[in-house]
Amino acid sequence: MIRHIFAATLLALGGASAAAACPDWQLNGQTGRYSGADLYQPRYFEIVAGGDFSLTRNCPQIYRQLRSDKGEGFFPQAPDFTIETPGMKGYRLEIAVVSDCDSALLVNTPAGNWYYDDDDNGNLDAMISLTSPSSGILDIWVGTHDGAYCDAQLRLETFN
C-alpha cells in the first residue's frame, strides 16, 4: 500500500522520467524467503557490487527520502535481492557487505522506507541495521561509492 502511494506521488510530482534511471523497487532481484528465525543463522550471498546510476546525481527523489546516512553511491536499476521477510517482529536485521572495494548499500523496506550506508561495516564496507524490521518484501541494492564494480558478499543476519 505504502509503495503504491509512493509511486503515485512520484508520478504526480513529475518524477517518472527521473525514476526510470534510478533504483526501482518495482523490479525484482534474486528472490528468497527468510523469516527472522531463519536469519538467526547468517545467510551469505555472492554478488558483484556496483551500478550505473548515481544516487546523488540521478535519483534526488530517493536521496531526499533516506532515513539514514546520506552519501554517494552507484547502484543498478533492479535490486540485487528481493526478499520476503515474514516473522520479523522482535528481531533486529543486519544487512552487511564485505567487498574488494568501497561498497554501498541501498535498502527499501516493506514499509517503503529507504536506507543507505557506505562504511558502517568497517574497511570501506557498508552495513545497515534495521532495529524494528517489518515483515514483507525487502529490496536490497549492493553498489559502490565511486562507481567501480567488484566482487562482494552480502550477509543477512537477525539478532534478538
Rank of each mutant, 00 (worst) to 15 (best):
M1E: 13
M1N: 09
F6I: 15
F6Q: 11
A7L: 15
A7R: 15
A7G: 02
A8R: 09
L10F: 07
L11M: 11
A12E: 11
L13A: 13
G14T: 11
C22G: 08
D24W: 10
N28A: 12
G29F: 07
Q30Y: 08
Q30R: 14
Y34V: 01
Y34W: 11
Y34M: 02
S35M: 09
A37H: 05
A37C: 00
D38A: 09
Y40G: 14
Q41P: 00
Y44S: 11
F45L: 13
I47G: 02
A49N: 07
G50C: 08
G51Y: 01
F53A: 10
F53M: 09
R57Q: 14
R57Y: 03
R64A: 12
Q65M: 15
D69G: 14
G71R: 00
E72Q: 09
E72I: 03
G73W: 11
G73D: 09
F75A: 12
F75Y: 15
P76L: 03
Q77H: 04
Q77M: 05
A78Y: 03
A78R: 06
A78S: 10
P79E: 06
P79N: 00
D80L: 05
T82E: 10
I83L: 15
E84M: 05
P86G: 04
K89V: 08
G90P: 02
G90D: 07
E94D: 11
E94A: 14
V97G: 10
V97R: 11
V98T: 12
S99H: 06
D100H: 12
D102R: 09
D102C: 02
S103F: 02
A104E: 03
A104P: 01
V107F: 09
V107K: 12
N108K: 06
N108M: 11
N108Y: 10
P110E: 12
A111M: 12
A111H: 07
G112W: 00
N113M: 11
W114H: 10
Y115E: 04
Y115A: 09
Y115C: 08
D117R: 00
D118Q: 14
D120P: 00
N121K: 03
G122E: 07
L124E: 15
M127F: 00
S129F: 02
L130V: 04
L130Y: 02
P133S: 10
P133Y: 13
P133H: 13
S134E: 15
S135C: 07
S135A: 13
I137H: 01
I140D: 08
W141V: 06
W141D: 08
T144C: 08
T144Q: 10
T144K: 09
H145G: 05
D146K: 10
A148I: 02
A148K: 08
A148C: 07
Y149C: 03
C150F: 06
L154Y: 04
L154F: 05
L156N: 05
T158I: 12
